[in-house]
């Protein structure tokens, strides 16, 4: 399956990936509206790590044997039958945080903006190219068949 590959040596910490992730997961898909009116109900699905000159954007790593999948008590964490991607069905999630407790990269976040749910990268479900990769100006993120 296709996975997002991080090239931390190319990351300049511009946070465009974060901006476009948020817009992608907004209802309006409009950058102004997403930030002005939807900001309190949506959150980016990636985490930017930064320390001195080193930075990178971290999304779900799509593990071969996902710890979140075996820890999930609700069945919300599942593999998409078509793409094989690890996905969280937010309508089934109860926010028990078991997945957060076991994800070795810390790529899953608490979404407390509405119902308590686990929030993670969905590879921009259905898109040919995830928004973070498409909008990275320095190819610090690539989308590759691995």
């Amino acid at each position: 399956m296709k996975r997002i590959v991080i090239h931390e040596e190319y990351c300049i910490g511009c946070r465009l990936c974060e901006v476009h992730c948020l817009v992608q997961h907004s209802e309006s898909h409009d950058i102004i509206r997403a930030f002005r009116t939807e900001r309190n109900s949506i959150m980016p699905r990636l985490t930017i790590e930064e320390s001195g000159p080193v930075s990178f954007a971290l999304q779900c790593r799509q593990c071969e044997e996902p710890a979140c999948l075996e820890a999930c008590i609700s069945g919300a964490m599942h593999r998409d039958p078509e793409t094989g991607a690890v996905m969280c069905d937010e309508s089934r999630c109860v926010g028990c945080w078991m997945c957060i407790m076991v994800c070795p990269t810390g790529a899953i976040q608490q979404n407390l903006l509405g119902n308590r749910i686990a929030s993670k990268c969905d590879l921009c479900y259905g898109a040919d190219m995830p928004a973070c990769v498409a909008n990275c100006p320095n190819e610090a993120l690539t989308y590759e068949e691995i």
């Binding site: 945080w97 957060i100 407790m101 994800c103």
Partner: peptide, 13 residues
């Protein structure tokens, strides 16, 4: 604060 708790679990493993 349980943010990124799994990183600790990963380190334990």
């Amino acid at each position: 604060d349980i943010n990124r708790a799994g990183i600790y679990t990963g380190l334990i493993r």
